[in-house]
Amino acid sequence: MKPESNQTFTGPVISVDKLIVNYDEFKAVDEISFHVHPGEIFGLLGPNGAGKTSTLECMEGIRQRTSGSIKILGEDPKTNFRQLRNLIGVQLQSSGLPNTMTVEEAIRFFCTYHQVAVDYSLVERFGLTEKRKVQYSSLSAGLQRRLVLALAMVHKPRVIFLDEPTAGLDVHSRVELHQIMNELRGNATSIILATHDMAEAEKMADRVAILLKGRIVSTGTPRALTLSGSELTKIMVNTANNCLGKNQSIFPGVLSSDFGEDYATYFTATPGPTVAALISEIEFRGDTLIDLRVVRPSLEERFLEITQTKNN
């Protein structure tokens, strides 16, 4: 079956099954399996050398796998790379363009190879309009990164692979990229996001897989992953008369607490009942609530917990 651009996939657009990648004796990827669905942003997280890039490159068809199977839109990238090239978009961590190629030429060049109409709208969105006539070597590293990102999306692929896309990007470009990613998700484009940036993964990814030493050690939605950890939720409360600091009541689920000048801080395993009890206590004491903050454990904290536990 040849994938067509207008063909709708109801099942997974990406299926990776028992993927193994060996470099001589070194096992870079060790029997990993996962699926990605249409319109899903799937995060591949892991420390350096965890096997993220090897996994991505096998899916992109630019690296040979040792064993296992990969299907992208129903095609094996190892054998049917040509059929897939117009349907996938790739932003590599290490790739380049000819030094003398201008932004405009790059867009035209790759649109022509992808057999799509030349479209400069992404040039504008990534803030490269003023640099259209500028050669690649004269662009700053951040602008080069923006151009490579634009090239990965210019042919409107159905699956996009992004490897550390926001590394070296300024805040505006990062926000714009996230907005574009959300729009793409809305158009049923699937995105594989390999990143070290946990905040980005937490914000953008629908599901994540944490890789460590070539294996998937944890997978799920960022929220499910953070909730499954041993980290406690932090609740910070500030009241007009500081009634909580004066009267150290015991609240449900609270395992430890800390009282500063303005805020009383509680670490709880059950944030819902704790917050309810805190509010009742403030009302009971006739105090006025000024500020209440609930800080859940972040994906970064959970990531560190998982990788440290598994490493040990």
Partner: peptide, 16 residues
């Protein structure tokens, strides 16, 4: 130079 600097990689993924 193109091979060393990843230009061929860009070409490959874009179907050159």
């Amino acid at each position: 130079t193109a091979r060393e600097s990843g230009i061929f990689r860009s070409y490959r993924i874009n179907g050159v």
